[in-house]
Design a protein around this nucleic acid. Structure first.
Lengths: 148, 148
DNA sequence: TATTGTTATACTCTATAACTATA
DNA sequence: TATAGTTATAGAGTATAACAATA
């Protein structure tokens, strides 16, 4: 009564896809750690720089980093001491301090992004324009959130 | 003289793919941190459990975790204190100690894998068997290493 | 009352260097 | 000599709880 012989193959494909993705995750993490180390940044510090594409209040930065806000105080202290970020008081709420990148922080962030994204650019070069279109469509369908 | 009008579109697709992958990486990292926290494990401890699908010498575990071997001593000490791993002397080299999961460690590892992999399983359900085949083929082509 | 950011505390991670015991 | 693992040390991350300033 096996009307759908592709069911098993499908499950295998899904497992294989997950294996490929896990390898991508590992590789991405290693690239990130290496890039951070080359800049003499602790992973948490590098992660903060990547989040700061726009100024963020301390507590929002804590939320993005998935850690307690008390940790962000020292983290931003040390990034400030290295001249990579500044704390600016918020105009609308005097409790809030906006953390933003200095020019040096922007340069460090750009270097991180360039190094972490390098293998992805190589990978894309292995695909034709049509294949890239297909891949994007499939990834979007697989990851699309059901926001109706 | 623009003979290839798809060049620009291709670059856009590649950027979009990279954006989707970055979102996947962030989500995966957050899932991992959450799953580790629910087990009262430090991220480094959870990472060690995930690497220990097979027994590993201390220095190999250090290599997989991309950290100095001196750190692994304390890491394994604490995992041992919690009954999640054991250190067994190697039969072939008396300098080496094999780190391996206890039954409790295997349960913790299984829980981590289940929680971290959950969104990937949901994503695969959004694709047909044929689409999964296509996605796997594209990912493999994009990530294949030129080992000739 | 609730929220933002800080401080205090305790534990863990991390890199470096020096040490031992093996190879 | 080189390698595996440990120890010592110093700096950084992390969670929790308590606090002052502001909303």
């Amino acid at each position: 009564m096996s009307v759908m012989p592709s069911a098993n193959e499908s499950a295998d494909d899904a497992s294989e896809i997950w294996a490929v993705l896990r390898a991508l995750f590992r590789d991405h993490r290693l690239r990130f750690l290496t890039a951070a180390g080359e800049l003499n940044l602790h992973p948490a510090q590098a992660g903060a720089l990547l989040q700061l594409h726009e100024p963020l209040p301390m507590h929002e930065l804590a939320a993005k980093l998935a850690c307690d806000k008390s940790n962000v105080t020292g983290l931003v202290d040390r990034l400030t001491a290295r001249g990579l970020v500044t704390r600016e008081p918020s105009a609308s709420d005097r409790r809030v301090r906006q953390v933003m990148l200095t020019p040096g922080g922007q340069r460090a962030r750009a270097r991180l992004l360039a190094e972490v994204g390098a293998p992805a650019r190589s990978a894309m070069r292995r695909l034709s324009a049509e294949e890239q279109r297909q891949l994007l469509a499939l990834l979007r369908k697989a990851t699309e959130t059901e926001s109706h």
